[in-house]
Write a protein that binds this DNA or RNA. Structure first.
Lengths: 246, 246
DNA sequence: GTCTATAATGGGATAGAC
DNA sequence: GTCTATCCCATTATAGAC
């Protein structure tokens, strides 16, 4: 059930006509009715996002996707080319905004500290909060996206599709590491990487909301309770860093 | 390249002939040559194990498996029935031994403590060490199995195949939680579950050896270095528990 | 137990009318 | 941009000879 999208807008504005160098004008995409295309593309992306999470890349067929989107099979190829390209499009659609949220959160923490070294717990919080906020409060599509992202992070890198996905997030990770290292100048770079990696590793499981913890805790803990998880995790991992800092 | 297996042995010993109640003897499987069957089954299991890790359940075909095993396609059905049954067989083959290793490691720690409460760091160590030992030192098949297990733990529980897999390990988790709670009597059961879950969540990523950390750390950390990871993780998470215990 | 052959279905992708 | 129809290949699974 894809969420309703209100804004239409023109996706690709044609460049204003100015041809100073007098080059022959390139063949342009014909002036066809593009008003409904964005809706179709979004519907396909929404359906793909949802199904890829549930059954994985290979477990989801383009037929499943087109059916769930209420759209003809051929349109998936028309709009996205191949299945792999569609998968990439699903990832890319929200990647930039997600990274921006994480970067902004980190920047706020750093700015708030002024000349001081930012509180490492706040740094960890800035890393985990944005995806959780998106997942909890920006609609079903965002939740699917975050879960998908976390699943892809848990695939072996030999797997062809995954590498270009995770690269989106490398620079934010670097920024976080830099800030953490300021708090622990006597800790080796390697150890900071390891400890942060444990944090990130736990996050990837938690964001999937696998449901493991629900069963193992007999219902005491709920994987869907991401707000609680964000709080507990930042406290716990901050305590870990602190304990290792001696 | 499946590892060589030396032992043959009889898998199913026919019951000794004693028929006190005089019932008509049941139709028995015909006396056919079973000497090569175990080898074939193992070859299929090895190949399946390896390929499921690399490309996932849906991304791996029975043709791929039979080819990798050097065996006819039809034999996969003869020996295991359906593809799903084969997957289960792959999981089940090593599950018992793996669980036993974990249980033994935990028991040793508890016994060593005698009347005292066992060191929580040793308890965590007992949980993470057995799969890592298997993965590192018991051959390629074991490494594939551990990676596969960790991947399955990172699938949403809606996914049909996963639940019967993870259930194998629930009782060990319960035992570990019981021991940890002894160390932190003032900590709520819920919090112990959460903190241990973070540990387990990190483990599932780490055991996959995704390779994320290699790239993010610029080579400082290697996902394949599970010995280091076991040490660092037990220290770090023990520090986390200790820090939260106030 | 192993093999060949084949059934029956579903998969990604494309052609061409509208 | 959308639709129908179709190509061609891969898939799981089974039948039956050896």
């Amino acid at each position: 059930m894809p969420e309703v999208r209100k804004e239409i807008a023109t996706i690709e504005l044609p460049e204003p006509v100015s041809n100073p160098e007098g080059k022959p004008s390139k063949p342009r995409t014909p002036r066809i009715d593009r008003r409904k295309a964005p809706l179709t593309k979004e519907k396909i992306l929404d359906a793909a996002e949802s199904l890829f999470v549930q059954r994985g890349y290979y477990g989801t067929s383009l037929r499943d996707i087109s059916k769930a989107a209420g759209v003809q099979l051929a349109l998936t190829h028309y709009h996205f080319g191949s299945k792999e390209d569609l998968f990439r499009a699903v990832i890319d659609r929200r990647a930039e905004e997600n990274v921006a949220s994480m970067r902004d959160a980190l920047r706020k923490v750093v700015n708030a500290a002024g000349d001081q070294v930012p509180d490492p717990q706040a740094v960890l919080h800035a890393f985990i909060t944005p995806p959780i906020e998106h997942s909890l409060r920006d609609g079903e599509g965002w939740r699917n996206y975050i879960r998908l992202l976390a699943q892809v992070a848990n695939l072996p890198q030999e797997e062809s599709i995954v590498v270009p996905v995770n690269i989106h997030y490398d620079s934010v990770v670097q920024d976080v590491i830099v800030q953490l290292r300021r708090s622990y100048p006597h800790m080796s770079a390697t150890d900071v990487h390891w400890y942060f990696h444990f944090f990130q590793a736990a996050i990837t499981h938690v964001l999937i909301e696998s449901g493991l913890v629900d069963r193992q805790s007999g219902g005491l803990c709920k994987a869907s309770d991401l707000d609680t998880i964000a709080e507990k995790m930042t406290q716990f991992f901050a305590a870990g860093f602190k304990g290792m800092a001696r």
